[in-house]
């Protein structure tokens, strides 16, 4: 090497005072009041789902006909329902099913949507046109109709609910991923990968995917809120979680006829529970979105 500008003269890579982009997002989340509030609410419900049964005053499934439809009191804080089950105990443990079904459905939607988005965004052209039109057609059908058809075909089960919601949400995630991939596709590192004869699989999953994680994370948290809402709706309509689960949507469904008789407590607390969980997830999603888009 004749000419040298010495490597010794180069500065050490700048690590001090700078964090990786993901760490940056993490610290910005910890400073976000919106995110922390949302996370607090969600963690509360997760704790209830995991440990609630050890702390609740009554067995959420045990009926007590003599005390049916008792208003809120010192013994029954949220009153009792039409067969005398303790509403408070049922609300506390009622998050168990929704908190397994909704996240799993979201996970399915994310995995399928990411794969579809990478595929359509990477190959573009005719592949993209065909798949995108099919996905759009799919998005036009209401979830409830899909659910009805699926239940007729597959029977009611948690799996059916997960698959139905997961597949209904996948096109929405696919659309977000596709637009991010289309932007990445134009960057020179993709051309550089082609100039190494990399496979399409490698280029999509090793080169492009890590760079589109931020929009995927944001979209996933937003979808989780919708998934919770969708599970509650399907349960309410009888296509979702099945009795005897103390699920909120299901409880509202079996008690809402009582409102006319003035027995508001049989429905109100379950409804509030759904509302807080959805709001909690949405607040967290807002925080995640903000942290990635600062």
């Amino acid at each position: 090497m004749s000419a040298t500008d010495s490597p010794a003269g180069m500065p050490a890579p700048d690590n001090a005072g700078r964090r990786g982009p993901m760490a940056e997002v993490f610290f910005s989340l910890l400073r976000s009041g919106t995110f922390l509030t949302g996370l607090g609410i969600v963690l509360f419900w997760i704790a209830c789902a995991l440990f609630g049964e050890h702390f609740v005053p009554y067995d959420p499934l045990a009926d007590d006909i003599i005390n049916a439809l008792a208003p809120p009191s010192a013994e029954h804080w949220f009153g009792t329902d039409q067969i005398g089950r303790d509403v408070f105990s049922r609300v506390i443990v009622g998050s168990r099913d929704i908190l397994t079904v909704a996240p799993l459905a979201t996970l399915l939607a994310t995995v399928a949507g990411t794969a579809l988005g990478l595929f359509t965004g990477y190959f573009r052209g005719i592949v993209d046109d065909i798949i995108s039109r099919i996905l759009e057609a799919f998005m036009a059908i209401p979830v409830v109709i899909v659910a009805l058809l699926a239940i007729v075909a597959l029977g009611t089960s948690k799996t059916t609910v997960i698959v139905v919601i997961g597949l209904s949400f996948a096109p929405i995630i696919a659309r977000t991923v596709r637009s991010a991939v289309l932007a990445e596709r134009e960057l020179d590192y993709v051309a550089a990968a082609q100039l190494r004869h990399e496979s399409a699989f490698h280029t999509m999953f090793v080169e492009i995917l890590p760079n589109v994680i931020p929009p995927i994370l944001v979209e996933t948290t937003v979808r989780l809120g919708y998934a919770i809402f969708a599970v509650a709706t399907l349960s309410f309509m009888g296509f979702g979680i099945q009795p005897p689960s103390p699920d909120w949507g299901l409880s509202i469904s079996s008690n809402y006829g009582m409102i006319g008789g003035g027995f508001w407590w049989t429905v109100l607390f379950d409804a509030l529970a759904i509302a807080t969980l959805v709001i909690g997830v949405n607040l967290a999603a807002d925080g995640v979105h903000g942290a990635f888009n600062d």
Binding site: L187, D188, Y189, H197, P210, N211
Partner: peptide, 21 residues
């Protein structure tokens, strides 16, 4: 593969050419 490796490129903008992940 031999033909591909024989011809390579240095792009204008390294931020675009180097995968940031």
């Amino acid at each position: 593969d031999d033909q591909i490796k024989a011809m390579q490129i240095v792009f204008q903008n390294p931020d675009s050419a180097l995968n940031r992940s």
